[in-house]
Amino acid sequence: MAIQPITTLTGKAVPIAGADIDTDRIIPARFLKCVTFDDLAEGMFYDERFEKDGSSKNHPIDDPKHAGASLMVVGPNFGCGSSREHAPQSIKRSGFQAIIGSSYAEIFFGNSTGLGMPCVSADPADVETLANYITEHPQTELTLDLTAGEVRYGEHRLEINMPEGPKEALLSGRFDSIQELLDQTAAIEETAAALPYI
């Protein structure tokens, strides 16, 4: 596995309002009828963005002022619900590199980390301030600095946090754990041998 450290990400952001945005909303189930993740970008937030006839609902993602955004600013408990990795895959494949919010559902968080897409957390009120700022100043370039534990925008600085393990995995570029897991073959077999049901 190639090592790709993720330390600092810079880009414009788009705010997605609302608490408890579940993975069914991020990628409706009908888009899961696929055997690869390749075409998932088109389904991202589909029912929030488009009417039945395909016309736009003018969701912030489709607002020209947020075009090219690579960071997403979200509400609490983002990504709750189903374990479908299709959700973070669709976000990543739509060009987003990181998510800034206040809390995440755990499976979504882990799936995103594994893809090298950090989900960082900050105080809910501060996240809201950031979201309002972006709405008013959509051209602002944000810098998400994982090492320093902050997001810098305009004159402002937002303190962010992330649990140590996943943060370390991203900073060291070892977020895809497969090689490290494979390296432990002997220990895996030893553990298996000690478990009578295996």
């Binding site: 497969i178 490290e180 494979l182």
Partner: peptide, 18 residues
């Protein structure tokens, strides 16, 4: 517990997870 698809790969390949 539920896991994502990349983790399904990890379990298939190593029977372990991070």
């Amino acid at each position: 517990m539920g896991i994502g698809t990349t983790q399904v790969r990890d379990v298939l390949a190593t029977q372990t997870l991070a």
